[in-house]
């Protein structure tokens, strides 16, 4: 799979890249690709989200085809858009969400931050609040959108919304939780390194043959290891 670091990029521009990639991955023209980036400040909301969770009427919000409610993206936050063919990776949306959580938890752990899942509240959390948000869109079993991990962003913009539709939901960042203040580039480097391995470990890629299934990925790590916490 490919990893592409887009740096600071406008939400709509990144969306156009995702759409193109989704079509190419679905048709087999492009390999699965992880886009890593930061957005200039923008509020976005999932297609099923409620505008009532935007507390400040002055805010304009971009509605987009992902799950979840309203959130904020901006500098200091690492955004990951994995364009992944779930059609070949077990076709299980919940399992994919748990994988994104596991990835974020492990990356946070590498910066000395103990984050965890909270059952029923997708994303990852510390005692002080939400550290990473997750929202996924799937078209022809190819996933787009993904996760947003707060590295060291200004957290004030979250006060103007009910993050993820939860009133008073506290939001935190690696910078607040860790002893040192990591940069987005440092965190992106860890994600880039960890992502392909963890993906193949937790959502192994398979092909179908007359004889049944066989594993096609070179990066395949022992199957059945590290059962995913699927509720």
């Amino acid at each position: 799979m490919d990893v592409s670091n887009l740096g600071l990029i406008d939400f709509h521009a990144a969306y156009a890249i995702q759409e193109r990639l989704v079509a190419q991955v679905a048709s087999g023209e492009a390999p699965e690709t992880l886009l890593l980036l930061e957005h200039p400040p923008v509020y976005t909301i999932g297609s099923g989200g409620s505008e009532a969770n935007v507390l400040d009427p002055a805010i304009s919000v971009v509605r987009t085809n992902r799950g979840g409610d309203v959130t904020w993206h901006g500098p200091g936050q690492l955004v990951g858009y994995p364009v992944i063919d779930l059609g070949r990776r077990g076709r299980d949306l919940h399992r994919y969400l748990r994988f994104l959580e596991e990835l974020s938890i492990r990356v946070a752990g590498e910066f000395g931050v103990a984050a965890r899942r909270v059952p029923g509240k997708t994303g990852i959390w510390t005692d002080r609040g939400k550290l990473a948000s997750i929202g996924v869109g799937v078209r022809r079993w190819v996933a787009m959108h993904g996760f947003a991990l707060n590295v060291a962003p200004d957290l004030e913009p979250f006060a103007r919304i009910n993050p993820c539709g939860m009133a008073g939901c506290p939001v935190t960042s690696l910078a607040r939780e860790a002893d040192a203040e990591p940069t987005v580039a440092e965190v992106a480097a860890r994600v880039e390194c960890l992502f392909p391995h963890l993906l193949n470990e937790l959502l192994p890629c398979e092909t179908e043959t007359e004889g049944g299934r066989h594993v096609c990925c070179r990066l395949q790590v022992a199957r059945g290891k590290a059962p995913l916490d699927v509720r």
Partner: peptide
């Protein structure tokens, strides 16, 4: 054709 969009957990799926 995409006929509808459905959501489970934090993932949306376009139904073909």
């Amino acid at each position: 054709d995409i006929i509808a969009e459905v959501e489970t957990d934090k993932a949306n799926m376009e139904l073909e």
